[in-house]
Design a protein around this nucleic acid. Structure first.
Lengths: 113, 113
DNA sequence: CAAACACATATCCGGACAGTTATGGTTTAT
DNA sequence: ATAAACCATAACTGTCCGGATATGTGTTTG
């Protein structure tokens, strides 16, 4: 049996989408500052607008982002369920060692509120 | 300010290491079946031994794997603290939406072992 | 000591990917 | 109606990356 068989393809797109620093930064900004138009995101990036659009398309394809068209401008926002495959994967394979409860409980501690 | 500034470079190597399906499969196998030699891993892969070595080097560089030399063979095992940057990052940015407690509490539920 | 083994590294190759400029389509403003 | 703004897509380019084969280093075996 090959390695690749048995690997759900769902987290692959999420991992690949978050592997790029620029793309991750855009996602982080959408998390922090909420909904943003494309040119708002482009303003703060050092890359061209088409590059931002391509990154947004990748994030959208991975389910990490949702688009809302309003007239001639498109608003993007972070998708709540986008990180679920990632969280599931971590829960699946982080469970094999002992630090699991410590780290995740600490994670919950810091997330009160 | 550019996006990339303010992004810790630590999770980047982890994300990139786990973005490749073959590499993720090797990591998963090390989690499931414990310590493995290179040729054991190569036996179950459809790629050559040098390819496996390169993947292991990438995982090792990301802190996801540790090598233990023993004579002419090298044993690899999953590194407990390897996923910490990933968990920290998720805790940081998953906290911006409401599903955080639900999903992570469910994660802890399924990990009672 | 010579041969086989286990692994790493070097080099090369083809495809994927992030970036650019150019262009089209749609909506708002003049 | 024309122009400008906002965004997406197309086409192209340079770079990175995963794969292979070939080779080197160290270790065990005959």
């Amino acid at each position: 049996m090959s390695y690749v068989s048995g690997v759900s393809a769902i987290p692959s797109t999420v991992f690949k989408a978050l592997a790029d620093p620029t793309r991750r930064s855009i996602f982080e900004r959408l998390c922090r500052d909420g909904e943003q138009t494309v040119w708002m995101l482009t303003r703060h990036a050092r890359i061209s607008q088409p590059a931002v659009s391509k990154h947004l398309a990748a994030l959208r394809s991975a389910g990490l982002v949702r688009a809302r068209c309003e007239g001639r401008e498109t608003h993007y926002r972070a998708e709540p369920h986008g990180l679920s495959p990632l969280i599931d994967w971590i829960g699946l394979y982080a469970a094999f060692w002992g630090e699991r409860l410590d780290r995740l409980e600490a994670l919950l501690q810091g997330m009160d509120k």
